[in-house]
Design a protein around this nucleic acid. Structure first.
Lengths: 137, 137
DNA sequence: ATTTATTTGTACGTATGTATC
DNA sequence: CGATACATACGTACAAATAAA
């Protein structure tokens, strides 16, 4: 359970594994706060940078969300609304640019869906709120 | 052009903006190498951490790809193969877990597409290589 | 095949800025 | 205002991967 600084797996990966396990086990429930950086630093006897890299890793996986000056929280499992893919349309997934992320108010680790309609019109959807569907015949 | 340490926009964001502009203008062509961390540090008069955060930001946007011990490179625009979404199927986009990223050999900043077939079968596709389509009526 | 130089990765410490409560 | 918490940014050092001599 304890972190081994001499292990070949980096300290920050070890801590991320511990936290991920606690999240998936429900010990850290959706919406609940992770321990602060200072606490994680002290309790695991590691530096602050390693702690921050751990949380950054979980953020990039879409598992947690960090609010500056407040804390890091386990992301709620998003409620997805169903969007029907129109006939003749196509869709690609990609990460948003910084500007797109801000304007769409997306958390880190959230991709976007870019839907091209048959007439060339493009629609950009938040990847964590949408489930694209094609109705049965 | 020069980086202003007293600006309210962080140094690493300023550098990322500069590099992103050079990428989108074609000065840094797809496949070409970015300047090394040491060069960027010296030429812009900033610390290595700021340089690394800049490149990390571009990586998370899927614009560059970093190879340890070698350098960072402008990502090639991916060739997407078209995959038809079956009738009755649905699809969501999300970021891969660390294990998924390794096993699918995905670069950072590449989402995945999770396709659920009508019979509940699930298929996981790399988001940078696939364009999902629904054929016209 | 060994070594050397280059480059990125990990990790620590320190200091200061800024947002939230 | 003060306390807490995360963000930015510098410096340092060593580890590890890569390529070239």
């Amino acid at each position: 359970m304890a972190i081994d600084p001499r292990s070949h797996t980096p300290v920050y990966v070890q801590l991320a594994d511990i936290l991920r396990e606690q999240i998936e086990a429900g010990e850290l429930a959706p919406g609940s706060a992770l321990p602060s950086e200072a606490r994680l630093t002290q309790e695991h006897g590691i530096g602050r940078e390693a702690v921050r890299m751990s949380i950054s890793l979980l953020r990039s996986e879409g598992l947690v969300n960090t609010v500056r000056g407040h804390g890091s929280y386990v992301r709620e499992v998003p409620q997805r609304r169903q969007v029907e893919l129109a006939p003749g349309a196509s869709v690609v997934a990609r990460m948003p640019s910084g500007g797109e992320r801000r304007s769409m108010q997306l958390d880190e680790g959230v991709p976007i869906l870019e839907v091209r309609g048959p007439e060339g019109n493009v629609e950009v959807l938040p990847g964590d709120e949408v489930e694209l569907t094609r109705p049965p015949t």
